[in-house]
Amino acid sequence: MDTSEFGRFSDPALMILASLAGGEKHGYAMMEDIQAMTGVRLGPGTLYGALSRLEQDGLIEALPADERRRPYKLTTQGAVFLRQYLASLKKIVSLGLKRLEA
């Protein structure tokens, strides 16, 4: 699986996975966390567009609703995917930085 599957939601999907790597959260908590983490404020439509795809792909899992708000958590598959994806990004980042410094 790669993030191109998520189309215009690939970056938001990655941000959601990274946010949930820090623990289970509901939609609004994810929005705030992502904004604090990246400076990007995800719109509600974008957030749930990515969220629904991540859930469908089994990368995140819905937990029982707390009143109307439903928290989500990263699944094992989601954690593996995020780890692999961040590792590949890390390689690109370090290689790019090395080339810039050379």
Binding site: G27, Y28, G43, P44, G45, T46, E67, R68, R69, R70
Partner: peptide, 24 residues
């Protein structure tokens, strides 16, 4: 229900409305 609860907290600007529209 959860999306509505989210909108209750974060629907502030016309850009949010456009974002929801695109999401729909």
């Amino acid at each position: 229900p959860e999306f509505d609860a989210l909108l209750e907290q974060c629907l502030h600007s016309p850009l949010d409305v456009v974002d929801v529209f695109l999401g729909a």
